[in-house]
């Protein structure tokens, strides 16, 4: 209890600080999933540890102690957590609840918006493809949250649509368009939007993981790039398609006016092209084992801390009777 309750915080601190170097240990597809998994577990343990710390203070409130049937004096005497730490934990939990609620509302609204877009674009779909007559250079994967009700919208279950503007189609050659299609298809099949959502919620629950969503976002793009390069069996072609699309997008008149929503900012596309021009990335098994062991250790500490708090309150209950 004296130490292990703080282990999840240390873990979150390390993960939050090391998310960049960690992301380069595995191929992007695996790295995104490993980091999201680690982030969700770490954020969960962090909230649990804060709850334990806070509960030692809340349990000393006379009214709650009377309902619970334990002795406040015994609890005060045996409690290894200083009141200042305990109340700080309570305050932080309250603040995090607000943050998490705000984040959940924003994400839900984004999902609803994209669902509206999918519903309104569906009538124009041929299979999975939706072409929008627009000179802006844009292409994106539009996940299906529900089976679209369009006339011709017969897609495979659990996937969605590939939306592409005529501006994008005109900017690329036929082989380069195949890269775009394969890239967006990878997003749909990987259910990438759910992975990013999990990373965003983990970061909302634990501010130490602020950099996690941006990194995961970039990794998901890289993973789709690698998938596309494999699909067309030509890394150079994949790099060319991305560079040409990026160039066309930066020169197009109908360029989106909104800010840098990706967090990675301006260098993301150039970094992706550069990565495609290099040798394919490789994964390190040993690093995965290391992260796995670290997570198991954190989980054990969280469970142990929970048991310690339970014993503390049992002690205070017996002392009263």
């Amino acid at each position: 209890m004296r130490l292990d309750v703080y282990v999840p915080m240390l873990a979150a601190l390390l993960l939050g600080a090391g998310v960049g170097p960690l992301s380069r240990l595995w191929v992007p597809h695996a790295a995104a999933r490993i980091l999201v998994g680690a982030g969700v577990i770490s954020a969960g343990c962090w909230v649990w540890a804060l709850g334990l710390l806070g509960w030692t203070a809340v349990g000393q409130v006379p009214l709650i102690a009377r309902y619970g049937g334990w002795s406040v004096t015994v609890l005060q005497g045996a409690d290894p957590v200083s009141p200042a730490v305990a109340y700080a934990a309570v305050g932080m939990l309250l603040a995090l609840t607000v943050l998490l609620a705000v984040s959940a509302v924003r994400r839900t609204r984004a999902v609803v918006r994209s669902w509206t877009l999918a519903r309104r674009l569906a009538p124009a779909a041929n299979g999975e493809l939706i072409v929008v007559p627009d000179e802006a250079v844009d292409a994106f994967a539009l996940p299906a949250f529900r089976r679209p009700a369009g006339r011709r919208a017969v897609t495979r279950a659990g996937s969605g649509h590939i939306v592409v503007t005529t501006g994008m189609l005109q900017a690329l050659g036929p082989d380069e368009r195949r890269v775009v299609f394969a890239h967006e298809r990878a997003h749909l099949h990987g259910h990438d939007h759910w992975w990013l959502l999990a990373a965003q919620l983990a970061a909302a629950a634990n501010p130490l993981l602020t950099r996690l969503p941006g990194t995961v976002d970039y990794l998901l793009e890289r993973a789709a790039d690698e998938h596309a390069a494999t699909a067309v069996r030509d890394r150079g072609l994949a790099a060319r398609a991305l560079a040409r699309a990026g160039l066309a997008a930066s020169r197009a008149p109908g360029r989106p006016s909104h800010g840098l929503a990706l967090g990675y900012g301006a260098t993301a596309v150039t970094a992706r092209v550069a990565a495609l021009l290099e040798a394919p990335p490789r994964s390190r098994r040993a690093a995965l084992v290391g992260v796995g062991l670290a997570l198991v250790f954190v989980l054990c500490c969280a469970v142990d801390a929970g048991r310690d708090v339970e014993h503390l309150f049992e002690l205070a209950m017996y002392a009263r009777h």
């Binding site: 984004a110 890239h183 997003h187 550069a274």
Partner: peptide
């Protein structure tokens, strides 16, 4: 809304001014 990227995966995101030269070189 600024957080639409939470759901939509775009092929090319917004680009900065200096990206154009780098992209041309990479292309």
């Amino acid at each position: 809304g600024s957080d639409r990227t939470a759901v939509l995966r775009r092929f090319v995101a917004e680009l900065g001014g200096e990206d154009e030269a780098v992209l041309a070189e990479l292309l």
